[in-house]
Design a protein around this nucleic acid. Structure first.
Lengths: 233, 233
DNA sequence: CAATCCAATCTGGTTAACCAATTTTGAAAT
DNA sequence: ATTTCAAAATTGGTTAACCAGATTGGATTG
């Protein structure tokens, strides 16, 4: 178990070192936006690491929009300017793994917005999906079963109905870690789940009748218990 | 230019097909959380695709917390349950590229929160970084130069000072696309930048004197122009 | 019969050779 | 001197062989 974390950290370290070297190279060679980076083979040779490591690092920087690879052509510095690039790389290198508090804080922020947007923009198809998620949750709870997954799928359905793909993506990113932490700290016990049904129903109704303010208020009620748990850890 | 998008889409399509097949396999084999997925070689053979493609798909699912690879051991289904996994995979497959409106909407939401958190939690080290970013911006503007990058680096410094690593990460993800869109639509012109200096200064002061509400209000003022531009596109 | 140990096997990771598309180059033609 | 164009070099992507650590299963031993 410990090993898994160790190797991942080690891998992370290697990748960060490569990112640092790429940054230094860009600065040293004074590469402007749109300029071409040296070939992957050259970089792996120069840095003394494997080419796949270099590719991974490039992929990560691609994910953050700093580089862009064009097949059979080369890897290019994005059009965001050297200063921004330098600052962003610094930030990426110093990024920490999110703690539970950050996750919950972010989730609450996102959801109070997505629920309002969902109430404004939901289509009929969204309503159908929301209803299905709601029913799945209720059924599990009524059968005295654990319903953490169904709970969060309902919330993901709201994010989807918000029509904001960035927020939808971000909700997807934080959800698995939320689930595992919930199960670790036993946040959602069965007695809470019963009240959860009504709360979900209220949120659903507010979205259905397209009342953003009500939807947000009902979501706040739903999060009340979560607040308490979260800030006691 | 068109080609680059085409190949990326094609690549995306292949990857999504593999993700679909992995999902189907998990359902078909009724794999529970913690169970081991077939080896990468087996999957690439069964799906008729290259092993590197399989690895990429696994990496993506790892990013979203659905799978976890352990070196020399295997790839395992995460402890989030089959129902959640299935629903999340569906969502991941249907994710769209974020449009400019989504990006700005998300940015405003995030920043109105990070600026408050920064006012509450900023350390002395944060203040120094914020001041440096502020000065860099002012200097560029006073020299009549384009300062979009310095502008956003100031905002990233706020995100870092918020002490919430999730929000910090998300700001980093959306920033490059914001920059390129800004430059495409010419959102930040030079006459605006002059007033921007005072607005940045106000935000900085509010953070320094640890006044969350004032910080948020000043940020709202700063976003006023952005609102107008954003909803006219 | 249970515990132990070692070798065969299986795993994700790494490496190097290969591929096809792109870019460069320089000689030939105008 | 300029343009053309095909061949050679360069590129990211792909493939297959290889590596070292983990797992497994059965033979051995107490």
């Amino acid at each position: 178990m410990k090993l898994e974390i160790l190797t991942r950290n080690e891998n992370q370290t290697v990748q960060n070192e490569i990112i640092t070297k790429i940054r230094d190279l860009i600065v040293y060679k004074n590469l402007e936006p749109g300029d071409k980076l040296p070939a992957e083979r050259v970089l792996s040779d120069k840095f003394g690491v494997s080419r796949s490591n270099v590719r991974e690092a490039i992929r990560k920087l691609e994910f953050y929009g700093i580089l862009a690879s064009k097949p059979q052509s080369g890897t290019f510095v994005a059009d965001i300017g050297q200063i921004a690039m330098n600052g962003m790389m610094e930030d990426i290198l110093s990024l920490e793994e999110p703690d539970f508090k950050s996750l919950v804080e972010t989730r609450i922020l996102l959801e109070l917005k997505t629920v309002r947007l969902a109430a404004q923009r939901r289509t009929e198809a969204d309503l159908i999906r929301l209803k299905a998620a709601l029913d799945a949750y209720s059924e599990k709870v009524n059968n005295q079963e654990d319903a953490v997954q169904e709970d969060l799928l309902f919330h993901l359905a709201i994010a989807k109905a918000s029509g904001n793909s960035s927020m939808n993506t971000f909700m997807l990113i934080i959800t698995p870690e939320i689930i595992t932490n919930f199960e670790k700290y036993h946040v959602c016990d069965k007695d809470l789940a019963i009240t959860g049904i009504q709360e979900h129903q209220d949120i659903f109704d507010a979205i259905k009748q397209q009342n953003p303010q009500l939807a947000k208020d009902k979501m706040k009620v739903h999060f009340k218990t979560l607040y308490q748990y979260c800030y006691n850890i």
